[in-house]
């Protein structure tokens, strides 16, 4: 089989690939970013939460913030990927939600904004 024939075969099989798995990956990524921001602010605002998030003492609450955010991101990706594995979803809505969550993650990691919502 030559190279172009291989390409055609791949394109043909790819035509039936639903957008669900992509939507699951995109939405989980946005949610993971937002989780990172929310946990970062929570750890900064509350000493008990900061203590709870200190998984590795030398790195402080950052260790818990990042571990929990990553576990949340991967778990959500796994769950959504299972549910949307064979589905075609409304990607425009997923896009809006994912980008809003990503923007929230960016905003909450920006210290002046985080301080503002904490009333510092």
């Amino acid at each position: 089989m030559n190279k172009s024939a291989t390409q055609i075969q791949e394109d043909k099989s790819g035509e039936h690939l639903p957008n669900g798995p992509a939507a699951a990956a995109v939405l989980a990524s946005g949610a993971g970013s937002a989780a990172l921001g929310i946990l970062g602010v929570a750890g900064d605002a509350s000493k008990p939460i900061a203590k709870l998030l200190t998984f590795y003492l030398p790195a402080g609450p950052l260790s818990g913030v990042t571990c929990v955010a990553i576990i949340f991101w991967l778990a959500l990706w796994f769950i959504l990927a299972k549910r949307w594995a064979t589905r075609t979803v409304a990607f425009a809505r997923v896009n809006i939600a994912a980008l809003a969550l990503l923007a929230l993650g960016f905003l909450l990691t920006f210290p002046p904004f985080a301080d503002l919502i904490q009333g510092k």
Partner: peptide
């Protein structure tokens, strides 16, 4: 304070980007 948190968004986002580009490359 900014760097220690925002940095983590980059590999998370790039993991998704790489996965989608690999899976949906042909389509």
């Amino acid at each position: 304070e900014w760097k220690e948190h925002i940095a983590w968004i980059a590999p998370m986002a790039m993991t998704m980007v790489a996965w989608v580009l690999t899976k949906y490359r042909a389509t």
